[in-house]
């Protein structure tokens, strides 16, 4: 089982990073371009409402039972909170901050990197936090069927063969992975949103 931990975690990591990159990139674009937003919003609401596990058989049929498929499944589930939160965050950029940027003639890239993205970052981070738990669940579920490796596969395998102690070891390991992810996220979030927590603290007085 231990040799299967690394591939599982790699798929989880790649899936999460892809969700973050795609979610933020697409979300920023959609959040900035109003017609695009109006066009895509109802579609997104629909896709977001579909529970991601039901897509697993469909995607496996289309893409085959490979590691890549599992990454795609993770991305398809985890991208939504990041994408939708980014759209919201980008849209909600403060009007005075935007006017300041205009009056000082900030360039397009300055407005993106020094205004829009930092301003949306608290929302984006909240989206990533949700995406992490979705990604972990999907990693396990995607390994439970059509698979012969991975943490999810082994936990199911142990269950079916009444290997109770081994089953529990798998479950504990999954729990630890979740905790580890949360710790890493906490460190990154505190660093990136130091200003945000500072502002909140001063507002509370």
């Amino acid at each position: 089982m231990m040799t299967d931990v690394i591939p599982s975690l790699t798929r989880l990591g790649v899936g999460l990073l892809l969700s973050i990159a795609l979610g933020i990139a697409a979300g920023t674009l959609i959040g900035l371009v109003r017609p695009l937003r109006e066009l895509t919003e109802p579609i997104f609401e629909f896709f977001r409402a579909i529970p991601p596990p039901v897509m697993i058989p469909v995607i496996t049929v289309i893409l085959g039972a490979t590691g890549f498929t599992k990454v795609v499944i993770i991305v398809l589930g985890a991208i939504w909170p990041i994408l939708l939160n980014t759209i919201d965050g980008v849209r909600a950029t403060d009007s005075v901050m935007k006017e300041t940027a205009r009056s000082f003639r900030l360039t397009r890239s300055q407005r993106l990197w020094d205004l829009v993205l930092p301003a949306a970052m608290p929302r984006i981070m909240a989206g990533i936090r949700q995406a992490m738990s979705i990604a972990l669940i999907l990693m396990v579920i995607s390994e439970m069927s059509n698979s012969s490796s991975g943490l999810g596969y082994w936990v199911t395998y142990f269950q079916r063969n009444y290997l109770i102690a081994e089953m529990w070891s798998g479950i504990v390991l999954l729990g630890l992975v979740g905790v580890l992810l949360a710790v890493i996220f906490g460190i990154v979030e505190r660093r990136m949103l130091r200003w945000y927590h500072g502002v909140k603290e001063t507002e509370r007085g």
């Binding site: 403060d94 009007s95 005075v96 901050m97 006017e99 300041t100 009056s103 000082f104 003639r105 020094d114 205004l115 930092p118 301003a119 970052m121 200003w195 945000y196 500072g198 502002v199």
Partner: peptide
């Protein structure tokens, strides 16, 4: 480029990050 503005709402005009 020859004008610079100072807004009333300093809290929303400066970038907190």
């Amino acid at each position: 480029a020859s004008m610079a503005l100072v807004f009333q709402e300093y809290g929303r005009s400066l970038y907190p990050w």
